[in-house]
Structures are given as structure tokens and as C-alpha cells.
């Protein structure tokens, strides 16, 4: 797993961004940027070379699902790995995310191992 890549963490809760940053740092990732909603995440995508997006679902302004659809609809970013990390765990949510092209899906609460395993799969 290439840990030199630039990772964008998107979550409206600073707590979750901090937990994810801690886990990613433990895994060796150093190049981390954050956004607290989908709109800010999109601005960062337009201005920085992001290699991986890790996003929550339920956020103000632009949800994680809306961000995912926007990313997949834009040829510049359509192939970017996109990991959804969310408390939205009902079947319909997973189906919608898969149909929108999510690379993988982690349900909160999660262990560091769960994040590591999913990243290893989508970054291989």
C-alpha cells in the first residue's frame, strides 16, 4: 500500500476527522488534508492533487453521496478511490453508494483494522 499518496478526509465532525487522521498516521500516511463538508471537499479536489477520498455520508451543504456522484461524473476524478465511512448502514444506503460507484464502504463504529483492510483493498 502506497502511503505517500495525498488523502482527503471529509467529515462534518472534527472528532471523526481526528480519529481517521490518527489511524492513517499509524498506517504511515503523512499527506493528509481535511474538509468538513462536500462543498469544501470539492474545492480542495479542484485545487490540490488528491489521490484518495475518505468521506462521511451525512453532512451539511453537500452530502458524501452527492460528492461521490459529482466525483464519478467528472472525468478528471472519476477513477479516484473513494472510501465511504459512515453511520448510515441500512441496506438502501449501501446499494445507493455502490450504484454511485463507491470503491468501498466502512460502517461506524469501526476498528483501525477495518480501515486498514479496506484501504489495502482499494489501493492495491
Amino acid at each position: 500500500m502506497d502511503t505517500s499518496i495525498k488523502v482527503l478526509i471529509v467529515d462534518d465532525f472534527a472528532t471523526m476527522r481526528r480519529i481517521l487522521k490518527n489511524i492513517l498516521k499509524q498506517l504511515g500516511f503523512k499527506n493528509l488534508v481535511e474538509a468538513d463538508d462536500g462543498t469544501t471537499a470539492w474545492e480542495i479536489l479542484e485545487n490540490q492533487a488528491i489521490d484518495l477520498i475518505i468521506s462521511d455520508w451525512n453532512m451539511p451543504k453537500m452530502t458524501g453521496l452527492e460528492l461521490l456522484k459529482k466525483v464519478r461524473a467528472d472525468s478528471r476524478y472519476a477513477r479516484k478511490p473513494f472510501l465511504m465511512v459512515t453511520a448510515e448502514a441500512q441496506k438502501q444506503n449501501v446499494i445507493e453508494a455502490v450504484q454511485a460507484g463507491v470503491s468501498n464502504y466502512v460502517v461506524k463504529p469501526f476498528t483501525a483494522e477495518a480501515i486498514s483492510d479496506k484501504l489495502a483493498k482499494i489501493l492495491k
Binding site: 465532525f13 472534527a14 472528532t15 471523526m16 453511520a87 448502514a89 441500512q90 463504529p109
Partner: peptide, 23 residues
């Protein structure tokens, strides 16, 4: 504020897990 944010996220996660079981 950090504690308040964490309580919000914990509430969110508890709701999500419970809704998954209720579904």
C-alpha cells in the same frame, strides 16, 4: 467544543447502529 463534537458523533453512531438493527 471538542467534547461537544465527540458527543454529537457518538450520538450519530449509536443512532446509525440502532437503526441498522431495527431495519
Amino acid at each position: 467544543d471538542e467534547i461537544a463534537d465527540a458527543v454529537g458523533e457518538l450520538t450519530n453512531m449509536i443512532s446509525g447502529q440502532a437503526r441498522r438493527e431495527l431495519e
